[in-house]
């Protein structure tokens, strides 16, 4: 398991990374944490001609809060994000999701942006990003653009990023729990740290009466791309998230998702469990939101 040959360049700025990608003419790959890319190279499932190492680009490893928004540099290590006070306070859903990602060693190298850019259907960070409605900033020699997360994932392992684009920042609206807001993240994996057989992320806001003001639901492991279930959102809005509301939302989830069977679980299993995990995540989110009101 040795990678096929490639060239390597380490860059000190996003601009340099973009130039290198442009020069590689579509055959370049950004090397961030490498926790997904390097195994694929070793198995020769990917054969870029050039790796552009952005690990020393300081501007990609910042977490900044301001104006109701949290900006996370795409190269931020998952372990750094997990330990970050801003993330824990303002993006508890992301923190919950990060706790399910890999192991200590892979989180020490793996990056928040890298996980999003890989678009594994079962990756956790993508679900939090979907539920939190994050925006993705991508840059190339052609310029900078912002991509709403809802349009980012296009299928298993495919995204809206062009081959010459570098993912730069993730912009999250602040979503602290309490004061009527809460979140939940549930996952089932074969072993503790495996990719999800099914996973659900929920971000919820209640109004003063305890009714659902807004809710975002994302599920993973159940199809080509991480998926937001807006139809379930519609069903829940204005309700008190009573048992029948949760059951109805779960039923919608089961209808909407189109999972495939594989070695680890049947399509039926994934569909059924995705619905149940959404219910569990909604319950967690509701109790956080209600607790915060006291």
């Amino acid at each position: 398991m040795k990678a096929a040959e490639f060239d390597y360049v380490r860059v000190a700025s996003v601009e340099a990374a973009c130039r290198a990608l442009a020069e590689a003419g579509g055959d370049g790959k950004i090397l961030a944490g490498g926790q997904t890319l390097v195994p694929m190279l070793a198995m020769r499932l990917l054969r870029p001609t050039l790796l552009v190492d952005v690990n020393r680009v300081a501007s990609l490893q910042v977490i900044v809060a301001g104006g109701g928004e949290i900006v996370i540099g795409a190269g931020t290590r998952q372990s750094d994000a997990l330990a970050d006070e801003i993330v824990r306070r303002d993006l508890p859903l992301l923190a919950k999701a990060l706790g399910f990602v890999g192991h200590v060693q892979t989180r020490n190298r793996g990056t928040v942006g890298g996980s999003i850019a890989n678009a594994d259907p079962a990756a956790e960070i993508a679900l939090a990003a979907l539920a939190l409605d994050c925006e993705i900033v991508a840059q190339s020699v052609r310029g900078v653009r912002t991509i709403p997360i809802a349009r980012f994932f296009q299928g298993a392992m495919t995204t809206a990023l062009a081959a010459d684009e570098c993912l730069v920042e993730l912009h999250f609206p602040a979503a602290p729990s309490g004061g009527g807001r809460g979140c939940g993240f549930h996952e089932v994996a074969s072993r503790h740290s495996d990719f999800a057989l099914a996973a659900a992320a929920v971000q919820l806001a209640l109004d003063g009466e305890g009714a659902c003001r807004s809710v975002a639901i994302a599920v993973g492991g159940v199809g080509g791309a991480p998926l937001r279930i807006d139809a379930a959102t519609e069903r829940l809005r204005g309700t008190t998230l009573a048992a029948e509301d949760l059951a109805a939302a779960a039923a919608i989830v089961r209808e909407v998702v189109e999972p495939a069977s594989d070695l680890h679980a049947s399509a039926d299993y994934r569909r059924r469990v995705a619905g149940a995990l959404v219910e569990r995540a909604l319950l967690d989110a509701r109790s956080e939101a209600l607790a915060g009101r006291n």
Binding site: R10, G34, P39, A42, M43, D53, R109
Partner: peptide, 29 residues
């Protein structure tokens, strides 16, 4: 395993435990 699952290759890189099969030698510069 050379694909980042087993952890037998763990080393400390700048004080942090990482998988050395998922790190390129050139990155240790």
């Amino acid at each position: 395993c050379e694909h980042g699952v087993c952890g037998a290759c763990s080393v400390l890189l700048d004080g942090v435990p990482v998988r050395s099969c998922l790190t390129l030698a050139v990155q240790a510069d």
